[in-house]
């Protein structure tokens, strides 16, 4: 299942937290060879993990990380505006209705579940957009991700690219709406109700009468 967790609440899920940062080290440092920082414990983190981002994390049945992504509002500091603005014409993307998504990651342990986990993480983003009246998410991605998004049924619109072949990186824009949700659900076989239930479990709503009486 998917859990939505802000960074300051991660400590309540130590197993999930540690396996996520380890899986990120594996994916970004070892497998993709990005210039990222890995701590002695084997955790990959950067400055954006320290400004309380919202993670959407797929939790495997044993409580470890299956896949995740990290979100921040574009009205504050973001990776794309701070470091990759050349991809988008030199000027920042700033909108209350656009969030930045970074560190989209899958655990090497998911095996045959990879398709489902990837789709679930993307669906978590769509559901957040629908519930919170967001328009889009923006992010920088590696050339190798293009076919993965295509297979998931959630192709980004490419805003700009640099480099060629395997070393190409692009800035992409993903629509966070019912159409994207339906498309990813159809390709993955995940029921929309399941996605809604994940969101509701992370952000439970009381009844107003319960709050005052309690």
């Amino acid at each position: 299942m998917i859990k939505y967790i802000y960074a300051d609440a991660l400590d309540a899920f130590p197993k999930l937290r540690d396996s996520m940062f380890r899986d990120r080290a594996f994916q970004f440092k070892e497998r993709l060879g990005w210039d990222v920082t890995v701590s002695e414990e084997g955790f990959e983190t950067d400055e954006y993990d320290r400004v309380n981002p919202l993670y959407m994390i797929y939790e495997l049945p044993d409580g470890t990380h299956g896949g995740s992504m990290r979100n921040l509002p574009t009205t504050g500091n973001t990776m794309i505006n701070d470091h990759f603005s050349s991809l988008i014409g030199g000027a920042p993307i700033i909108s209350p209705l656009i969030w930045e998504t970074t560190r989209f990651c899958l655990s090497p342990n998911v095996g045959k579940l990879a398709g489902r986990v990837g789709a679930a993480v993307c669906l978590a983003g769509c559901e957040a957009g629908i519930r919170w009246a967001l328009d889009s998410s923006v992010g920088v991605f590696d050339a190798r991700m293009v076919h993965i998004y295509k297979r998931l049924g959630w192709e980004p619109e490419i805003l700009g690219s640099s480099g060629t072949g395997k070393s190409a990186i692009s800035a992409g824009l993903w629509a966070l709406d019912e159409a994207s949700k339906a498309s990813i659900c159809a390709k993955s076989g995940i029921a929309p109700q399941e996605v809604e239930a994940w969101f509701d479990a992370s952000f439970p709503m009381m009844e107003s009468s319960q709050i005052l009486v309690a």
Binding site: N52, L54, L72, A128, W132, A133, M205, M206, S208
Partner: peptide, 9 residues
């Protein structure tokens, strides 16, 4: 947090 928040949440 930075998402729009209903008070009941």
């Amino acid at each position: 947090q930075f998402h729009p928040m209903d008070w009941k949440q």
